[in-house]
């Protein structure tokens, strides 16, 4: 398997080709907007191709640890059930479809765990830890994936 140039490099080269070669030949407003949107999406795909598998694996492990702590501290049934499902059905595969399914299942455990802490005032420390996972692991990485995102073609 030829792994270099990487997928990200190929996608960024396509961006360059579209901007430098195709762009100047595009003259209608609607097509220019579409081209700009495609450029943004290609860059987002490049960022995801570089890191999304590693990020999902890392987050699954972190969420599992957090949900386990919440289940122990609260005895919350929904969290416990989601955690069991996440563990039992985890494929352990790095194939994207299977890993995305693993990630979704463990994300459900994170949702349940945060909800359990929101409903229990005394669990403010665990609640803060859950929100920090949302902020650091998800929101900040999503910001990296957004890359040069902007709402093109409005107004």
């Amino acid at each position: 398997m030829i792994v270099r140039p990487t997928t990200a490099q190929l996608l960024r080269d396509l961006r360059h080709e579209l901007t430098e070669v195709v762009g100047p030949e595009v003259h209608t407003a609607t097509a220019r907007v579409a081209l700009e949107q495609i450029d943004i999406i290609l860059e987002q795909c490049a960022v995801r191709a570089e890191s999304e598998i590693a990020w999902m694996v890392e987050e699954i492990d972190e969420i599992e640890g957090y949900a386990s702590d919440v289940a122990d501290a609260t005895g919350d049934e929904a969290t416990t059930a989601a955690l069991i499902a996440g563990r039992r059905e985890r494929s352990g595969s790095l194939e994207l479809e299977a890993l995305a399914a693993d990630y979704n299942r463990m994300s459900e455990a994170l949702s349940c765990a945060i909800e359990a802490c929101m409903a229990r005032a005394e669990q403010h420390e665990l609640r803060a830890r859950g929100i920090e996972i949302l902020r650091l692991r998800r929101a900040e990485r999503e910001t990296v994936v957004r890359a040069n995102w902007r709402l093109v073609g409005r107004g």
Binding site: A34, Q37, I38, I40, I41, Q44, I131, L134, R135, R138, A139, E140, E142, T143, V145, R146, W149, L151, V152, G153
Partner: peptide, 23 residues
């Protein structure tokens, strides 16, 4: 469509902003 795909950014932009706003 590219216009729909572009909206993944709207969802993630919301995530970031809402978490910060709620904080």
């Amino acid at each position: 469509g590219a216009m729909t795909a572009l909206q993944i950014g709207s969802i993630s932009f919301g995530h970031e902003n809402f978490i910060n706003a709620i904080a």
